Amino acid sequence: MRHLVYTSGSTLVEVLVALLLLAVGLLGGSAMQLSSLRARHESALLSTAMQLAASMAERMRANSTQMQALDADNPYLGLDYEAGPLDEAAGAPACLGNTTCSAAQLAQFDIAEWKQQLHKDLPGARLRICRDALAWDAAAQGLHWSCSGGSGAPIVIKLGWRGRQTRGRVAQESALPKIAMQLAAGAP
């Protein structure tokens, strides 16, 4: 007669396989969490950039005297600013407060304030304001920093920033703008 023996415990191999599966699951979960944190950070930067660009557009529209000036006399147009690691943006004109600013002084104040905000809120930010008929490069399927110019072209605010530095890799430079906001067609 045959006797079957049943063991009530687990073998060492079964325990090791279970631990391996648990470790792989935990590793996958932590990688997913890290990816989620990176996406949240990039989303926060994009949201900040959109708010800054919208603020710039509204300030430019509010300074209609300066926006109606010839392109060569308009300090907003042709603005190309790139924040360095130790960059200290120039102070704003001292015309605010009890005195009245001219349109040109107000534009200089706006530009100085934007530079401070960009330096504070976006890592390695770059800002370009220009006239550009084609901000989207169809061949590269993306935005580009160059501007086509021309008095009939719309005014475009282009913003970019460096990506977050990852272990062992240099931070991605702001090689291309990440957003481009075109002022309304009716804007000067």
Rank of each mutant, 00 (worst) to 15 (best):
T7D: 15
H41V: 12
L37N: 02
S30L: 09
T166N: 11
V13Y: 04
L127G: 06
P177E: 00
P123Y: 05
A72P: 07
Q165G: 06
Q172S: 08
L77W: 06
R2Q: 15
V13S: 15
M1W: 09
R164V: 14
L4M: 10
P177L: 06
L22N: 03
L37W: 07
A139G: 11
S36C: 07
Q66I: 12
A125E: 01
T166R: 05
A140C: 05
G150W: 03
G29A: 15
L127T: 02
L176Y: 10
C147R: 02
R2H: 14
H119D: 13
A62V: 01
K178I: 13
A153W: 01
S43W: 07
V5K: 15
V13R: 07
C101T: 06
A104H: 04
L127S: 01
A153L: 01
G142A: 08
R40D: 14
T99V: 08
A171M: 06
G9C: 13
I157T: 02
L27F: 03
N74R: 03
G150I: 09
G124W: 06
P154S: 04
G97C: 04
L86Y: 10
T99I: 05
R167K: 14
R169L: 09
S174M: 04
A83D: 04
V5W: 05
R61T: 07
A83Q: 00
M50I: 12
C95P: 08
G9L: 12
K158P: 03
R40A: 15
A39D: 09
W145T: 11
I179V: 15
A49T: 04
R2G: 14
K158C: 10
L12G: 11
W145D: 09
N74D: 11
E113M: 01
V5L: 14
I179L: 13
P123H: 03
M181S: 10
Q33L: 05
V13C: 12
V15S: 05
D80G: 02
M1E: 13
A57K: 00
L45M: 13
A31M: 15
A180D: 00
R38S: 14
A54R: 02
A53C: 02
R131I: 06
A49G: 04
R162G: 05
A107R: 08
R167P: 11
Y76A: 15
N74A: 12
C95Y: 05
I179T: 12
W145I: 10
L4E: 12
Q108I: 01
W161D: 12
I129V: 09
L122V: 11
T99Q: 02
D137R: 02
V17S: 00
T100K: 02
C130E: 10
L79H: 00
A62T: 01
A92L: 05
G152W: 03
Y6M: 14
R61Y: 02
V17D: 03
C130T: 13
L27S: 15
Q105I: 06
P93S: 09
T7F: 11
V15A: 04
A57T: 08
H119N: 10
Q141A: 09
G84S: 07
S146D: 07
A39G: 08
A125H: 02
G186K: 02
K120V: 14
